[in-house]
Amino acid sequence: MNKRWIHIILLLAVGLIAVIVIADYLSTRPGKRPPNPFAFDVSDYESVEESLISHRETRQIRITDTKAVHIASNENNIFLLTAGYLQTLTPRGEEINSISLGQAATSLFAFPDNSVIIAFENYLEYYSAEGNLLHRSDSAPDNALFTAVSTMENRIYVADAGNNQVVVYDLALKYLDTFKGESGVSTLHGFILPSRHFDMAVNADNELWIVNPGLHYIQNYAADGRFRRQWGKPSFTPEGFSGCCNPSYITFLHDGRFVTSEKGLVRIKIYKESGILESVVASPEAFKNGLKAPAIATLENDIVVALDFDRSMIRIFEPK
C-alpha cells in the first residue's frame, strides 16, 4: 500500500471521528446534560469572602445504616438522634452509649450530666445518663408536632410546629402552659411557620430565644411567654436569612453568641448577642448540591458540630 492511500484512510478516519463527535454534541440522548436555560441561580451568593469565614472543617463522622434526625451536645459529648436510637458520642465519634427508643423521635435536649429529654411527635421522654426512662409526658392534643426542646429555670419548653405554639412542661414532664408569641404589638401574628422548621435554644444567661421563621426573626421570650425583643432580617447576603423558614436551627456558643443554620442557601453563621453578623462558620460552598439545613450543636472552644442530612455525616468545624 502506498503512502497516498494511507493518507486517504487517515483523513477518512479523522473525518469519521469528527462526524461522530459533532453528532453526539448535537444529539439529545438521555445521558447528556446540556446547561439548563431556566436554572434557578443562586451562585452569586454561594461564595463568601474568605476573611468572613472563621472556622475550618477538621473532622467528619459518617453515619451508616440509619437515618439521622437531630443532634445536640453538652460540654463533653455529642448526642445523635437517629431513626429509633439515641447515640452518645465523644467529639471524636466514638460511641459511649446507645438507647433504643422504639418510636421515631424528632428532637432532643442534653443536660450537662448526660441525661436527655427526647421529643417525639406529640410527647416527651426523659432518660437518665444510663438510658433509664425517668418520665414520660401525656400525648399532646391533635396536630401536635414537636420540633425542638430546651430547658430554662426548671421548665421544659417545646416548640410545637403543628399548632404554632410553645408548650411548657415541668421537669417531671407535667403540662404547665402554652404560648403562641402573640403578646407584643410587633408580634401580633405570633409564630409564622411556613414549614416544620421551628427551633429554640436557651443561652448561658437563661434567655429563651425562639425562631419565628416566617418573619425571619429570632425572638426572646420571658419564662412566662411574654415577648421581649427580636432581631433578624431577610436577605440573601450573609447578614440576613434567605428564603422562607430560616433560620432553620439555632444554638449558642458558650459566651452567648448565636449560631444559625439555614436551608436552601445552606450556610452556618455566628451572630453577636446584639444580632450583628460576626462570621461565617461554613459557606454554601461547603454544602454544595445540598438543600437541607444542617442541625447544629456546639462544643467548648467555639467548636460547631453540624449534622449534614444530605451527606449523612456529622461535620466538625473548629475556629481557624
Binding site: F38, F40, I192, S195, G214, C244, K263
Partner: peptide, 26 residues
C-alpha cells in the same frame, strides 16, 4: 403576612424555575 400564589397555565411553559426555588427554600 400571608400571600396566595396561583399559576396562570396559559402563560406557564413548564420550565420548573419556580419549582426549584420553592423546593430549595420552601
Amino acid at each position: 403576612p400571608y400571600y396566595e400564589y396561583r399559576i396562570n397555565e396559559d402563560l406557564c411553559i413548564g420550565c420548573a424555575k419556580c419549582v426549584e426555588g420553592c423546593s430549595a427554600f420552601g
